[in-house]
Simulated scan of single mutants.
Amino acid sequence: MSDAGEPRLEPADRFGPPEDDIARLWTPHRMVYIGGQDKPADSTPDECPFCRIPAGDDEQGLVVARGADCFALLNLYPYNGGHLMVLPYRHVSDYTDLTASETHELAAMTQTAMRVLRAVYAPAGFNLGMNQGEVAGAGIAAHLHQHVVPRWLGDANFLPVVGRTKALPELLADTRARLAAAWPTR
């Protein structure tokens, strides 16, 4: 307030973080994920995005490939560029409840995903995994999904560790198009 009791306008450069040697990468789009937007209200198939996606357009749903029992799609909130998930069409949460056919195709599609990612992006390695249950870190615990995360030397730099931010070099739509084009046809 000014001496006369009126609001005083301050220049915008007076706000924000103090001057220091830290570079800031603003990622406001991450608030959607952090805030839980679009997270299923319950564990039923009607609320499950993984059950809705196969009925829609592959590009819109980020679907890379489809099999008889399983499909592969990009993670909407990837840990790294090219982060895929392989999952059954059937709404099932526990790995031990998969049928033999689902188990076989999930494994085969995971192998194919690794081959395609190697051909398109040449990662140095992979993280593969399933988080079984919310307590284990599953974002959508009601529908089993296998993560296929390509890794490169030095990709675990300061951004995710300190800044809780991931810099992705390519739009998801472009990644989906490249991987779908490289996926072998059945």
Rank of each mutant, 00 (worst) to 15 (best):
L98H: 10
M130Q: 14
G125I: 02
S101Y: 06
T110M: 12
D97L: 11
E134A: 15
Q111N: 11
T99H: 10
R115I: 11
V120T: 13
Y89A: 02
R151V: 07
M109T: 09
M114A: 14
G129N: 14
N80D: 03
A136P: 10
N80Q: 13
Y95A: 15
G137C: 00
A141R: 02
L74C: 03
A124T: 14
A136F: 04
G137A: 01
E134C: 03
L128H: 12
A138E: 05
A138S: 14
D94F: 09
G137W: 00
A142W: 00
V92I: 14
L106G: 06
L98S: 04
A136W: 04
H145A: 06
A100C: 04
M114N: 04
T103Y: 09
Y89H: 13
A138Q: 09
M130V: 15
T96L: 15
E102H: 13
T110K: 07
T99E: 05
V135E: 07
L128Q: 13
Y79S: 10
L87N: 06
I140H: 00
P88S: 07
R115F: 04
L106T: 10
L144A: 10
A108Y: 08
A138M: 04
A124D: 15
G137V: 03
V116G: 02
E102D: 11
L117R: 13
A141L: 01
L106K: 08
A124Q: 14
L144W: 03
R118Q: 15
N131W: 00
L117M: 14
H147E: 12
L74W: 02
R118P: 09
R115M: 12
L98W: 13
R151S: 11
R115C: 08
V148A: 10
L117N: 15
V149E: 00
R115D: 13
E105S: 05
T99I: 07
